[in-house]
Structures are given as C-alpha cells and as structure tokens.
Design a protein around this nucleic acid. Sequence first.
RNA 1: GGAGAGAUGGGUGAGUGGUUUAAACCAGCAGUUUGCUAAACUGCCGUAUGGGAAACUGUACCGGGGGUUCGAAUCCCCCUCUCUCCGCCA
Length: 424
Amino acid sequence: MLPINLIREKREFIIERLKVKNFEAEEIINKILKLDSSRREIQSKTDLLQGEMNRISKEIGSLMKDGKRDEANASKEATYSLKEEIKVLTDKLVPIDIDLRNEIIRLPNLPHESVPGGHGADDNIKVREGGIMPVVSETALPHWDLIKKYDIIDFDLGIKLTGAGFPVYKGKGAKLQRALISFFLDEGEKAGYLEVMPPLMVNEDSGFGTGQLPDKEGQMYHATLDNFYLIPTAEVPVTNIYRDVILNADKLPIKNIAYTPCFRREAGSWGAHVRGLNRLHQFDKVEIVRIAHPDHSYESLEEMVNHVENLVSKLELPFRILKLCGGDMSFTSALTYDFEVWSAAQKRWLEVSSVSNFESFQANRLKCRFKEKGDKQTRLVHTLNGSALALPRIVAAILENNQTGSGIKIPKALIPYTGFDIIN
RNA sequence: GGAGAGAUGGGUGAGUGGUUUAAACCAGCAGUUUGCUAAACUGCCGUAUGGGAAACUGUACCGGGGGUUCGAAUCCCCCUCUCUCCGCCA
C-alpha cells in the first residue's frame, strides 16, 4: 500500500514508475486525489465542529456543578444543530474513507529505479550464473521417473490420501527432505538469522498485512469454519510478527528464518510443464525474512541474494540469477531476484527462490514502523524476504543432475545430514 | 462444547456519566547533586491526522463495531479475543 502523502506529492512520478510494471495508474490516482481532498475538507470541518461541541459540553458540565440549571439547558439547545451538522458530515465521510482505501490498495508497489521494463520472463535480465552444467546420458530420466524407480516419492499414494499435488515422501526421499530443511536452517543460523516456528494457519489480518488478501483469496486454502487461511509461504506469519509494532532503530535489521510447509491452491494454473515436483499444492520451504532500515534495505537484499547463492553453490547445482522485469514482478515487490537451477533431464531452468525488497509497501499495510533514538517521528521500515530455499525443485534438480548408473549421488554438503551418499 | 470472569499507554494498574487534561508505580530519556559495580531529586515520556517557521495547538483513538446522552474508558447491544473451572483430548 503506497502512503497517501506520496500519492499526493508525487503524482507524476508514481504514474511514470508504474508504467514499468505495465500498470496504468492515472485514472486511479486521479480518483484517489479527488477522494482524498474531499475527505480532508470534510474532516477539518468536522474537527472544528467537534471542538466547538466539546467546548460547550464542558461548559454545561461546570454550569451543572454550580447549579445553574437554566443556563445549562440553554447551552444544550445550542448543541442540537451542531450535532446534526456533525452527523451529516460524518455520514458523508464514511463512504469516502472506504472508497479511498479500496482505491489505494489497488495500486501496486513502485518498482525500484533499476528495474527494467518488459512484459514477461523473456525480458528478465541475467545478473550472473554459476556452477558446472552436469553431463548426463541421453537416456537420463526426468525426476518423475526417478522417484518411481527408487520408490522415494509417491504421488499416487498422495492422491489416495488427499489429491493431486500432495506427494508422500518415503524412505530416503523423506530423509532427503529432512536433510535439506536442516541444512538450510543451519546455514541461515550461521548467517545470523533467528529461527522461528510460526503457525501454519493465519487470520484475515495477517493475510491482509502481507498482501495476500483481499486480492489473492483464491490462491489460499481457507478453513471457513474458523476463518483461518493455510499459509502459502512462511513470509505471511513471520512478517506479520511485526504487524502493529514500533521498533527501535538499533534493533534493525531483524533477521528471521523459518521452515514451514506451504499450501497453495494454484487454481487454474495446472499444465503439461508442471509435472512431478515442478508444482505442488503442499511443499516445504525455508524462508528468510528481514525487517530493515530504509537506508540500508538494498544492502540487506544483496546479502540475502549472496546467502541463497551460497546455498545452491554448496549443493553443487548450476544456477542463474535473474533480475525480474517490471511485467514479471509481483504486485507488492520493488525489486526481485529469481534464482533458477538447471534440471538436466527436463533440460529447463527451474525457479527455486525469489528474493525481494518490498520497501515500505508491506510495512504500510502492516503498520510496522521504527523510531530513531531521540527522534519523535516514526518511519515505515522496509520488509524483505526470500526462499532459502524451496525444496521440491531443488530435489528435482539433485535427482536429475546427479543420476548415475549406480544411483543418485548426494551432494557432499548434504551427506552429514542424510547419513547416506547415494540413493539406489 | 458448557459455566463464569475479564480486555485501559512499553509493563503493572486506578478510574462506573462532567477538575480525567486517563491517576500512581515500574521501565525508558534528559538534567542536577553526591561521587563511583551506584543512589537521590527534577523534568520529559502513546499513536494518527489537521493548522503553525517554531513554541504551541484542534480532532480522533481505553479489544472491534454500533447505540443512548449536551457530554461515554464508564451505561446498553453485537462481535472478537484472553483467563479460570468443567467436559473432551495429544
């Protein structure tokens, strides 16, 4: 949510920046400014009348105390018309406030000045790449065949228990999940992140705070009896820890890491290229979240990108880092880097992490502010998050890239966690 | 699921219709004095928004929403949440 002051003061700038996201903002902004100025006009009139009202009421109070009944009654008469006026004004104000808010939350976050224009994945910019491309034989199997061959992940069983997209991990497959989760958490802890284990269901306020609600309602599983939502990512509960909080500047940056299962309905987005582990309704992910000082949030972003790069490097996966173009970025992001790893048998890049700076866009919804020592004014923090990492596609890449005649080799860094070095 | 009690500033907690301008204490910040692992004293100490160069000042906010009243933290209604006991249960 963009602050109303910014919209008021930098109308042209916002319209220009949002064009990078292919968003035509002029009409909405004009509407916002119109609503805002009538809101302010009515509000200041109301404040004036209310002040008068308060003054008279106090007067009546002291007259009553002095026993001057008649004078008090005369003053009461004077308030009737005032009261009526105030009611007329506030009745006008309520729908304006609602409209204003509904319009403001339609505006996406401004992209950072370095974000290139563009409409889709083809316009993203490759920042760098690393790792060694694996050499696999012509008969290399895609992971959905490998998991059957070694009986480590069972989709059919998941269908029996729940439905498509809810796999059952078995034996070394299950152990590999646990190993990756522990590995990612340990690496995060070494990098100074505090681990948290949040609830997997959140309320409506939390859904609003990080931007899932009201727009992306259909993407989340909804427990309607209690009005809870299953989290689509740990970003939601972890970032909402800081909802309605005023932090001391010296506490920043706050660095949290959390492992959670993630639940996504992915309604309507199923297709041929999302077989196997490429897209699931339930999957595991370790997420890093930062609450940063606005002056240093881009340093935080770089550190997070480096952290994720370190993870994929240690897993010996060939990767590339993309800076997303305006058209491919999310509604809430100001700058996003995507990590993709090479999947040798599918011969495609798979997105395994998305690291973003939301600047103050989420903070404004969350009302997460900070105060500089000795300063009276509060300011909005910047929030950031990134996957570090999402498991299924990492597993897909490890299985496909490391397949040999004698089995699937486990990356060295992971062996202390799995307790085995090959799946056969 | 049943019964009861409650929700007040960073914390504890007073306030049941008008000197409350939300007390007091604790924590925090600034200063004074003594002089040294510190104490005493004084002052400041919520958020948002409007006006003002600033000092200052108007308005709203006591879990959320509505109502009664000239006036509501206080009275009424609805909702949410928390605690205690009972039931159920890992």
